[in-house]
Design a protein around this nucleic acid. Structure first.
Lengths: 244, 244
DNA sequence: CATAATTTGTCCGTATGTATC
DNA sequence: GGATACATACGGACAAATTAT
């Protein structure tokens, strides 16, 4: 399973624990171990892969640092799940100015599908004209609408999405119903004036300053999964960013 | 130097490598090892502290993950420096929409000192009325002014700051001239309309949407060092945020 | 409730590989 | 080539947490 020796690749040598990590990531990516499932114990994996327990340990530690797995002493190592707590901590950066982070509620405005335009094709790495599904919703904190979201995914990857009951936590649905866990996301933030249509939905005047969040979410293997364009009122809410 | 045994603290037991890490952090914080200096080798530290090399290694690995030190195979472990490359990568999140991140230029508008108001005292953990130094500057990318910054620091910690030649990279000056390295920063982002005075400096109309970045930078030990309130034009520039 | 088994966390020691000077 | 330093890999021992018995 694992190639030994330094002469594996003339160009790039990869440490053993790195190769072990890649094997384990692939098993998660292939669905051998589903989200929330327990991974075999360290001694089992070591025997299975023919390496020492310490090497397996280093690979799992690296994956825990990447938030791909969760380790619990005395219990085992589990594939990370997209429960609300994790989403709130890792992917939802909009926090009330006073008080702690809370999970927002959602109300869907429209669901439809069509063919990818240039921007959609580019962000999702699709061919121009590929079939996509589009969602539009507003989200509220404390009953106050503060975010408008336009969400685009590849239709082939998320079949019959428009016929489903759409949950508040979409990433959890991607992982559990479609086997596509979101591992990370890249966001580009700008300030812009509220467009006419969206201003009404957010209850602000046209041209009022809004925070635009342009997010591409990617899977474990780096492939883009979802493009999300959010417009946020930041009257009583701010975007929290931790630089370290 | 290091307390052994589990009975050290009835409430919170701390692993040995954690204690080692704290000792090493304190030495950096106390200026025993200056920014950019080489830390003693792993075997030396192990002998010095009376622990194994593996424990020292785990402590240094944790510090490397926190970006407090930089490890270089074959050379040694060094206290992290605030050179332009690091600032650009870790603390400067404003990136041109097309093209790679670049370091901005600065033009200082005013330097002065006074007594901390409520907001300043709160962010810097000072007593109301403590002496502070205030800087105001605009920054440009590609010759185009895009950021206005108001910067506040405690006067006692940064003596005679207003008499100095002020550099573009302030964090490097904090570290090398005052021995106060910035370890991390917490930012709160909002969209807001341009105030009258600042709109002119940025070359936009009053009320034009700007990105406000409210940043508190903290030292290794968590103490606040600087409060910085930035207002950014995001016409051709965006704030990059990586969620993982 | 107590005990044992399992699993991860911590700590140690040693050997070898790779990078740098 | 040699010396030094960090990186990788292995193995073993015990501690702490959890679960099953």
């Amino acid at each position: 399973m694992i190639e030994r020796g330094a002469a594996q690749d003339a160009l790039g040598y990869r440490p053993l624990y790195r190769q072990v990590r890649d094997v384990l990531v692939k098993r998660i990516s292939d669905g051998v171990w589903q989200a929330g499932a327990a991974i075999p114990s360290e001694p089992e994996l070591a025997a299975d892969l023919g390496v020492s327990q310490g090497t397996v340990r280093k690979a799992l530690d690296a994956m825990a640092a990447e938030r791909l797995v969760v380790r619990r002493q005395g219990r085992g190592t589990y594939v990370a799940r997209h429960d609300d707590a994790r989403i709130l901590f890792q992917f939802f950066k909009l926090v009330p100015d006073d008080g702690p982070a809370r999970f927002p509620t959602s109300r869907f405005l429209s669901v439809g599908s069509g063919r990818a335009d240039a921007a959609e094709a580019s962000r999702l790495s699709l061919a121009r004209g590929a079939r996509v599904t589009r969602l539009e919703r507003v989200r509220a904190l404390d009953g106050e609408v503060c975010v408008h979201e336009r969400i685009v995914v590849e239709k082939a990857r998320f079949a019959d999405l428009e016929k489903r009951e759409l949950p508040n936590n979409l990433y959890e649905m991607y992982a559990t119903s479609y086997g596509v866990p979101v591992a990370r996301a890249v966001e580009r933030l700008k300030a812009m004036g509220a467009p006419a249509g969206i201003a009404a939905a957010l209850g602000v005047a046209e041209g009022a300053p809004l925070l635009q969040v342009d997010r591409v979410a990617t899977a474990i293997d780096g492939a883009p999964v979802e493009w999300r364009l959010s417009l946020c009122r930041t009257d009583r809410v701010h975007y929290a960013s931790d630089l370290r």
